[in-house]
């Protein structure tokens, strides 16, 4: 017999976990949609963001949440600087541009992980979050952990802001034009390098900031990146490559599947179930759950 209290709590856990994944999936999906880069470094941006929270917050005597503006600015600047390098290795006469992008970002991921290990050592670091401790108990439903709820809200807000920018501003229109057809966009007078740098910078900023939230939820650890890279891939495939609204659905499916499998089947079966879902989606609906990803066009 299913315990209703436990069941509703698992739903809450799954939704909030999905919210955490949304924060990562949004930027990753944007990078793929606009830049056509499968960014292997996404998980390491999360990790570096978490470490920035762990270092900067105590340095300023502040909570992790208050250093997010700094992280946003730093990551945007770094992302905008890295993008031309990615553009350089994925364009021109080079064969297999997608593979070149993968190799480049894989190297970047290895570099970031190695640097953090060398500087901070292998230990986990706490990201101060005393303002976001504990949970909000809703009678009849369950407990909403504050830090996870705030993280999920951040992810959904980030997605909304991206969507507004892409579909309601001239800059967003330019980015969509680039995603549609680079050559035509260039002929229309769009500064491709500039908008690609903006898009990659925004992706890096959002992902790095998500890292601070994830650091507050769990902790900052040099080995944490790989799992988020794997989940980002999962999200984008499930959402449909480059289809931003699908990210929310993918995040919820990922979070709920993980939670229900862990509690009602076995914690050891989580990855098995998740990848079974991926394979089924790839076979049945390669354009994602909603059928609106890039592969459908």
């Amino acid at each position: 017999m299913v315990d209703i209290g436990l069941f509703t709590q698992i739903v809450i856990n799954g939704l909030l976990l999905g919210g955490i994944y949304v924060t990562i999936g949004v930027g990753f999906s944007l990078a793929f949609g606009v830049l056509e880069v499968v960014d292997f470094a996404v998980g390491e941006y999360v990790m570096v963001g978490a470490f920035m929270g762990a270092v900067l917050a105590p340095l300023f005597g502040a909570e992790g949440v208050f250093v997010i503006p700094i992280v946003l600015v730093v990551f945007f600047a770094v992302g905008a600087l890295i993008q031309p390098l990615i553009h350089h290795v994925t364009t021109g006469d080079r064969p297999h541009p997608l593979l070149m992008g993968l190799v480049f970002t894989f190297g970047l991921a290895t570099f970031l992980r190695g640097s953090v290990l060398t500087i901070f050592g292998p230990n986990s670091q706490d990201v101060p979050s005393s303002l976001l401790t504990g949970g909000i108990e809703v009678p009849g439903l369950g407990t909403f952990p504050v830090v996870r709820t705030v993280t999920a809200v951040f992810g959904v807000t980030g997605l909304a802001v991206f969507m507004y920018y892409l579909y309601r501003t001239r800059g967003g229109m330019a980015i969509r034009a680039i995603a549609e057809d680079r050559t035509n966009a260039r002929l229309m007078g769009i500064n491709i390098n500039r908008y690609q740098s903006i898009a990659y910078g925004a992706y890096a900023a959002l992902t790095g900031s998500a890292g601070v939230f994830i650091g507050m939820t769990f902790n900052a650890s040099p080995g944490m990146g790989l799992q988020y890279t794997a989940f980002a891939f999962f999200m984008v495939v499930l959402a449909g490559m480059g289809y931003l609204p699908g990210v929310i659905v993918a995040g919820i499916v990922l979070g709920l599947t993980q939670s229900f499998t862990a509690v009602y089947i076995s914690g050891n079966a989580v990855l098995l179930v998740l990848f079974a879902i991926i394979y089924v989606v790839l076979l049945v609906s390669p354009a994602g759950i909603l059928g609106k990803g890039e592969w459908a066009t």
């Binding site: 709590q9 856990n13 914690g267």
Partner: peptide
Amino acid sequence: ELFPRDTDYTNVVS
């Protein structure tokens, strides 16, 4: 019960 290292512990705790 045993869990993988990277499990989400909210479910374990719930």
